[in-house]
Design a protein around this nucleic acid. Structure first.
Length: 487
RNA sequence: GCGGAAGUAGCUCAAUUGGUAGAGCGAUAGCCUUCCAAGCUAUAGGUUGCGGGUUCGAUCCUCGUCUUCCGCUCCA
């Protein structure tokens, strides 16, 4: 990251705090690492983003419905999903070099070295022993195995290891208030499983026919080892996911459909296409047969905002296996090849998964601008403006009486009462008008209207546009529809 | 986790080789009415990150600790 971009990112973080978008969590207690709170403007923007996504998914797609599953789920869910096995890695540190290694990586490297020497059998035996001990979570024996193999740190060259520690990427807690009898359950690391386990509930009750989708927004939790870059990587975050259930064999076309559709959603917010790119996954996760990220160019580089995954029937198949409940769909449509219905099958799934907090950061990054202006008298001036798309801006309209007397506040209040029924408005009569404009720029309000003395004579007001700073005289009766047209 | 840097009012910063904290902006209230932040007045706001030590006295010296940022590592 260049210094200039770094400064911009720092400025965005400061701005976010100063204007009530994002606060560090528990700040009076020195904060909680990688956890953040959303302030008055932040929670409006976040809610608007969530609503915009929700509407585009459910209201505008007749074959997508929503669920709101609990954060707590039966522990077996995470065995079936693969998270218990794939989200926990035993780690070991070398005391001399302070380097940390994954235990399985160390042993696999040792096995590879054995193979190069032609000791295939020993290598296989080592891997088999490792897998057995990992499955049994026998950390003492694993450490002994590392010692027996005389594995040393590549940096320090010593075998001076710490004890093996488990780094579980899932947060666990206790269900039930009686200690000892309590069962360990996890805070969900992704919302997707709440959709999968409700697949048949939703399909039957909403009478959905394949292809159809289930959408969900909600919190998820991951114990990131290093969480930095502001709200980009948090331990508690919000996902907006949609699982689209399809006939096996059609995953390619639907994958491409959602790849295109989701990018168009981003572009519909007016964000330039050159700020986006696709990144195809080469190494695929355990559940996917194709995967890509939609990346945005943040001040700290191109980073993932949204993932499109072809998850095959991995999840439903595993849930069927672990729960012993059929997760199948009977497809009555006629297969032209056979002339008969497609019949029973476990659907394939295309997933679209976007991080709401990352999307929020994207909007901040895209919107924030420090402008240098030249005033009419030729002197330099500056302003900080958040060019937040009008449809997701925290406030849509600021209503400002030019002065707080001569009956102007009364007219302004009348307009306020009319407009606030339809969209979020902000009323202010304090300070010079220019100052009030700049304050609205700083929080991204797209429109300001000013009630002045002329308003009393001909019922017109000045509407001022945030991005261009241009003003026009319009009838007060038109304010509501002009703002609504931009939303 | 390791290394480096920094912590003073909401923000940006002062405080003479150690003498018990100030300014600008911002905020709030009032005045003034002027369509692009910077007219006037007043008020609030700090155990100088926290805890020890040295000293008659610590924002300053010293030790520990916490937090943040940067780099490495880790993760994906």
């Amino acid at each position: 990251m260049s210094t200039q971009q770094e400064n911009k990112f720092q400025a965005i973080i400061s701005h976010a705090k100063e204007y009530g978008f994002v606060f560090p969590s528990s700040e009076i207690y020195d904060g909680l690492s990688a956890v953040y709170d959303y302030g008055p403007n932040g929670c409006e923007l976040k809610k608007n983003l969530r609503d915009y996504w929700w509407k585009s998914m459910t209201q505008l797609h007749e074959n997508i419905v929503g669920v709101d599953a609990a954060i707590f789920m039966h522990p077996t869910t995470w065995k079936a999903s693969g998270h218990v096995d794939n989200f926990s890695d035993p780690m070991i540190d070398n005391k001399d070099s302070q380097k940390r290694y994954r235990v399985d990586h160390l042993l696999e490297a040792r096995a590879d070295a054995l193979r190069e020497k032609g000791a295939e059998k020993e290598a296989d035996a080592l891997i088999a022993e490792m897998d057995r001990l990992l499955a049994a979570e026998d950390f003492a024996a694993l450490k002994q195995l590392i010692a027996d193999q005389q594995i040393v740190c590549a940096i320090s060259g010593t075998g001076n290891w710490t004890d093996i520690r488990q780094f579980n990427l899932m947060f666990s807690t206790q269900l039930g208030s009686v200690a000892g009898e309590a069962d360990t359950i996890y805070l969900r690391p992704e919302t997707a499983q709440g959709i999968f386990v409700n697949f048949l509930n939703v399909q039957k009750t909403a009478r959905m026919k394949i292809p159809f989708g289930i959408a969900q927004t909600g919190k998820a939790f991951r114990n990131e080892i290093v969480a930095r870059q502001f709200i980009f990587r948090m331990r508690e975050f919000e996902q907006m996911e949609m699982q689209f259930f399809i006939r096996p064999g059609t995953q390619k076309e639907w994958y491409n459909y959602w790849k295109e559709t989701r990018l168009q959603w981003h572009l519909s917010l007016g964000i330039p296409a050159e700020k986006y790119r696709y990144h195809d996954h080469v190494k695929l996760a355990h559940y996917a047969d194709a995967a890509l990220d939609i990346e945005y160019e943040f001040p700290f580089g191109f980073k993932e905002v949204e993932g499109i995954h072809s998850r095959t029937d991995f999840d439903l198949k595993n849930h069927q296996e672990y729960s012993k409940k059929k997760q199948q769909y009977f497809d009555n449509d006629i297969d032209e090849a056979t002339g008969k219905p497609y019949g029973n099958y476990i659907p394939y799934v295309i997933e679209t998964s976007i991080g709401l907090d990352r999307m929020f950061l994207l909007i901040l990054s895209q919107s924030y601008e420090e402008e240098t202006l030249t005033k009419e008298d030729g002197t330099a001036d500056s302003r900080v403006v958040m060019r937040i798309p009008a449809k997701i801006a925290p406030n849509k309209l600021a209503i400002l009486p030019l002065v707080k007397k001569d009956g102007l506040p009364e007219i302004a209040r009348e307009l306020m009462n009319e407009c606030k029924q339809h969209f979020k408005c902000f009323y202010e009569e304090k300070d010079a008008i220019g100052k009030r404009y700049r304050r609205q720029d700083a929080i991204g309000t797209p429109f300001c209207v000013t009630i002045d003395h002329q308003t009393k004579e001909d019922s017109t007001v000045t509407i001022r546009h945030r991005d261009s700073m241009l003003q026009e005289r319009i009838p007060i009766s038109k304010v509501k529809e002009i703002v609504q047209a931009a939303l």
